[in-house]
Every structure is written in C-alpha cells, then in structure tokens.
Amino acid sequence: MGCFHSKKARKTPGYEDPTVLAAETPFTVSEVESLYELFKKLSSSIFDDGLIHKEEFQLALFRNRNWRNLFADRLFYLFDVKRNGVIDFGEFVRSLGVFHPNAPVADKIAFAFRLYDLRETGYIEREELREMVLALLHESDLILANDIIETIVDETFSQANTKDNGKIDQEEWKEFVLKNPSLIKNMTLPHLMDINLAFPSFV
C-alpha cells in the first residue's frame, strides 16, 4: 500500500507545463526544467512552500533577507504578475525570459520602462527619476550636493523628454534607449544561456 516515491515528482503550486512556458519564452523545454531546479532552491530558502517570497528574493540577491532596495522591490513587483505577494514558477520563467540574451530588445525596453515608472502612470516623471537617484545614492553611500543631483536629473530629463512636457512616455523612452543602449545592459543575463549547465535537470 502506498509506497510512492512521490516527493521527487511533486510540483510546486504555480508549476506549469515546461512545453507551454518554452513556447512563450526564449527558453527550450530542458532550459525551463533547469530553471525549475533553480526555482526550487530559491523558493525553499526560507519558506518551503514552492513560491518565492520577497524575503527569499532579497536573500538570493543580497544574501540578506531584510536588505531592502528600491530597485529589487520594483523587480519583485514586476515579476509578481498576479500581484499576490509571491512569485510562482510560471511568473519566474516568463519574467526571466525578458532577460534572456535572445529576448526581443523591445521587450527589454518595455520592461525597463515599467521598472522606472514607479507610480505606474504610464510615464516616467521627473520626481520619480529624482527619487531613484536619491535611492541609489543612499544605497551606495555616495554623497552629492543637492544642486548637482538636480542638474543630473534635469539634464537627463531634458535629453529623454524630447516632447518637453515634463514626463517621459514609452516612445521617448524607446528613442532614448536606442541612442544609449547601455541603459538596458542589465536587462540581459548571460547566465541564462547556459542555465542547463548550472542547474542540470533530471530529464
């Protein structure tokens, strides 16, 4: 009676068919299966419930579950598509797909826009840019005089906001990134090219 080796086969609550996820992302089926190995590690590092909580995300990024960071918060928020406070496997794979070296540049540009559109107004506003610069200075312990910060924000804004209406829309953002491609450098993770080697799945 009931001598099952079910532990290995048991999937997490948000598990989705790798063939479906592979069809929707730049990953192959075996890469999705390898990502599942990574996902299992991340999602059981604090709470063993098969979902990535914000503390687990922070622990993976900073080796500290309590280390708060505006940009990590934004990434977690965007990965959490269902807005239920956790990242399930499907959300994890689809979001990481944007960071794949073969993902469309347009997707990377759009994702970066949403990261910076802190209040989700559909625009990056000057105050949001200023807030992000201040957050970075706080994070890095750099000290810049207020007038220098204002100059940097004003100058950046004037270059990106070609319509000169005080807010950067998606079209302006796209033009700005195409002129400054290094802005989306962190939207590509070379690690995703050899995910099979780093996290071999047991297929």
Binding site: L38, K41, L42, A60, L61, F62, R63, N69, L70, F71, A72, D73, R74, L75, L96, F99, A112, Y116, L129, M132, V133, A135, L136, E139, S140, I152, V153, E155, T156, F157, Q159, A160, F176, N180, S182, L183, I184, K185, N186, L189, P190, H191, I195, A198
Partner: peptide, 25 residues
Amino acid sequence: KFFNAFEFISSMSSGFDLSSLFENK
C-alpha cells in the same frame, strides 16, 4: 560630459543585478 542618471542607476544599483540569483547558490 553628459551624466546620464538612468545609466548611473542601472549600472550601480545592486538591486538590478539579477545575476546574483545564479551566483549566490
């Protein structure tokens, strides 16, 4: 030289560096 605030943020914030997901194992 033009100092790009977005570049400053994207290149310097550790919060943007998802490579740690693969390295801190």
